[in-house]
Design a protein around this nucleic acid. Structure first.
Lengths: 150, 150
DNA sequence: ATTCGCTTATCAATATTATCCATTTTTAGT
DNA sequence: ACTAAAAATGGATAATATTGATAAGCGAAT
């Protein structure tokens, strides 16, 4: 993991369809070392996935909500069950165990307030271990990046 | 935006390096329509970016923190200045204006608690308009997906 | 029912790119 | 300076993306 590897990862985090040729000229190398370094970085697990990022607004999924949750029962089996139930909800895109006043933080995306309401009433309410929910509705997304600064 | 387009977007959100040939066989088409549909989806803005997702832990960036912030002055100029200052901090990967007890929510990533402390003391403390901060440190990432359900 | 115009598919040709290999160069340790 | 290991070069080829010409399907208007 030298400086060249880092620069390759930086480029891939911005545009993973950039050709080896283009990267080679940016980094003053030929295509082969670029190619081999990328393969090595993939095998070593530094690169987890290559994905397309979509415009959620254009797709009608413009409601984003952060849910702060506390649970009643912290025992292992109840906790595991709770986590599995939350993870299985496909509206939830991110889910974290956190420190602070709440136990868990979830990010979810909906196409309307009604859909969000239905999610609360039907999906979350059916999970028994939840003791408290506080929702933070996103009014504006000011920055969103998947980049890891290396 | 018909069903085929949706399936293409679903595939690209999971693996954007999948070849047109593979997608064509999955969707019972030939490569050309796949290729043209993808170009059309790109031009229409549905696809914002193609990126590599990295393993932050492997790269030594394993501390993730959510920061809940309130600001003192909500007037336009002060607010704009605050937003610009926050966005410019490269530790902050996500930044939202939210409803609820706090005004803003930020996600940040650090390589150590010390780096997080320095961020609080040096970077955030130098932003004058901040009245209150509550940090939620991520103890475990249970789910992370960039997918938009279509 | 028929024709026109539009959309979308297929097929085939070619331009690019990824991928691999043999050889050379560079690097780091002795 | 010498050696062994690592990394880069340049070129060959296999695969894929990209383009263009053409044909099929379909709804609207006649």
């Amino acid at each position: 993991m030298d400086n060249i590897d880092k620069r390759i990862l930086e480029i891939l985090q911005t545009d993973c369809l950039k050709t080896a040729k283009e990267m080679a000229s940016e980094l003053s190398l030929t295509t082969t070392p670029i190619y081999e370094r990328i393969k090595k970085l993939e095998k070593a697990g530094y690169i987890k996935q290559y994905v397309a990022l979509l415009d959620a607004d254009l797709l009608g999924k413009s409601i984003v909500v952060f849910l702060n949750l506390t649970v009643k029962d912290h025992h292992v089996s109840k906790r595991t069950e709770f986590i599995q139930q939350m993870e299985s909800l496909e509206s939830i895109t991110e889910f974290y165990h956190i420190s602070g006043s709440y136990d868990f933080l979830a990010k979810a995306r909906f196409s309307s307030i009604k859909e969000y309401r239905d999610f609360l009433v039907n999906d979350v309410a059916s999970i028994s271990n939840v003791s408290d929910i506080e929702s933070q509705i996103v009014l504006e997304e000011l920055k969103y990046s998947t980049k890891v600064i290396i």
